[in-house]
Design a protein around this nucleic acid. Structure first.
Lengths: 93, 93
DNA sequence: GCAATATTTAGATAAATATCTAATAATCTA
DNA sequence: TAGATTATTAGATATTTATCTAAATATTGC
């Protein structure tokens, strides 16, 4: 996991909104796009950034591409954040 | 605490390095600058971004300006991060 | 195979960001 | 008070990023 990629991905409000949407479960690219005032092309760019950061996973289902949160990355992510904000961690360290 | 300001502040590697340095305790602007290959002016810009995000505090001490981590912000920060990455939270929710 | 649908990629442009040099502000000391 | 030190602000420039339109790719169903 590349720290820089993750923080960069999180720096954009549209991408954070995408992550929040995916908390409700996997969605197709088109479904995610609904409600965003942005072209599919731009959205696709954001997906690429999120994928680069390994925050989301993709799976093709017919014509659709389904996005979901990459849950396996959360442990690494937690470690990384605690590294910066020690107070997040419960340990006495 | 403005979410956008915090994430934006964290997106830059120099600023993350500044935060890490401050984990060892408060430092003057000049002390922080040592070891960074960057002008004082640029560094000052980074400080402004960190201050805007409320991640650091400043205090003038004579000619020096002393920077320190703003520890009171960590609880808000934790809440914010858990909002995005529920697995970070211990609760069963 | 062809048209329709869903998504991505390519290429261009506008806005945001990081950086620099030069100038300014605040404080200390002789 | 003048000069030195520390840091910030102003203004300019180069890079990065977000966005768009247009074109390309992948899949489905006829």
């Amino acid at each position: 996991m590349k720290q820089q990629d993750v923080f960069k991905a999180m720096a954009d409000p549209t991408r954070r909104a995408i992550l929040k949407r995916l908390q409700g479960g996997a969605l197709t690219a088109g479904e995610i796009g609904e409600g965003f005032d942005i072209t599919p092309a731009s959205l696709s760019h954001h997906f690429a950034v999120l994928r680069q950061a390994d925050l989301v996973r993709t799976e093709r289902r017919g014509q659709f591409i389904v996005y979901s949160l990459n849950s396996t990355v959360f442990e690494d992510l937690a470690r990384m954040l605690i590294d910066f904000f020690p107070n997040l961690g419960g340990g006495k360290k």
